[in-house]
């Protein structure tokens, strides 16, 4: 099956839906039409720009350009993870977000490219960049939920944590309920995504491949691989983020150091 190529006029037809949304907003005084217009414009400009950029990068096969793009994407994700919690570690939340986001995305991407996908060369940007893009979305979710789960709740749980310390428990034991809750919360989105895949939702990658003309069974294989990678990277990020965050809130005498939190 050959993919049906889309022309600008074809996309303009879909734009009619947005015009209807805008008209509803004006008619019912919902006042979201301005935000919708700006978001639509941003979305189109961003995607067109990234489309041309990726076309250029894919044609070049330059490992340095690929690495630079991956680094830029990862740093934006690090920033998003770091700013999401309402509390800040002294020295900044990036101390936790940077090693986890960058470490996990590098590890998972290299693992997938060298074992399951095996493009030639292994860093082929046509595979590496979309893969990192998808993984970062999941890593960002897991990292920010885990970090918020620890930093935003540790003050509320202070009395319970210190009560356990006073019974002679280690800091790790005393903070285990908090860390466990943070990791479990961070895993909810990817677990829901896997549970719903194919029944409640048709995941984006698989749908995109089928719309582009791919065989559904082949598309499903890619989707299964991606969901496994997403679950694996989410778990590594959630566990690494929660443990690293709580480790910044103690000292050599296993005290709870909330003075290290702003």
């Amino acid at each position: 099956m050959t993919p049906l190529s889309l022309h600008t006029a074809d996309i303009a037809w879909a734009g009619i839906l947005l015009l209807i949304d805008g008209a509803l907003s004006v008619w019912l005084r919902l006042r979201f039409h301005r935000a919708l217009a700006i978001a639509t414009l941003r979305m189109v400009l961003q995607l067109v720009a990234v489309g041309y950029l990726l076309r250029y990068v894919f044609a070049g096969h330059s490992p340095w350009l690929t690495a630079a793009i991956l680094l830029a994407m990862s740093l934006v994700a690090v920033r998003e993870v770091a700013v999401r919690p309402s509390r800040r570690l002294r020295g900044g939340n990036a101390r936790v977000a940077l090693p986890n986001v960058v470490g996990v995305v590098l590890l998972t991407t290299a693992f997938a490219l060298m074992t399951a996908i095996r493009p030639e060369p292994w860093y082929d940007p046509r595979y590496a960049i979309p893969l990192v893009g998808i993984l970062l979305g999941s890593i960002l979710n897991a990292g920010s939920i885990a970090l918020s789960g620890v930093l935003d709740n540790v003050t509320l749980r202070r009395e319970g944590i210190e009560a356990q310390l006073m019974l002679g428990r280690s800091f790790r034991e005393a903070t285990a309920p908090l860390v466990t809750r943070a990791v479990r919360s961070a895993m909810v989105p990817v677990i829901n995504q896997m549970a719903a895949a194919g029944v409640i939702t048709l995941p984006g990658t698989m749908t995109g491949q089928m719309l582009a003309g791919a065989d559904p069974v082949n598309a499903v294989k890619y989707q299964i691989l991606l969901l496994i990678l997403l679950a694996g990277s989410s778990c590594l990020t959630a566990v690494g983020t929660a443990f690293l965050a709580i480790s910044h809130l103690t000292d050599e005498r296993q005290r709870l150091r909330l003075d290290r939190l702003r």
Binding site: R157, R158, E159, G160, I161, E162, A163, Q164, L165, M166, L167, G168, R169, S170, A174, P177, R253, Q254, R255
Partner: peptide, 20 residues
């Protein structure tokens, strides 16, 4: 070790702490 010390010296703060 801090855990040994806290097994020997127990603090009961004005607001008791609970975790379960």
């Amino acid at each position: 070790s801090p855990t040994t010390w806290r097994r020997r010296v127990a603090l009961l703060p004005a607001r008791s702490g609970w975790w379960a």
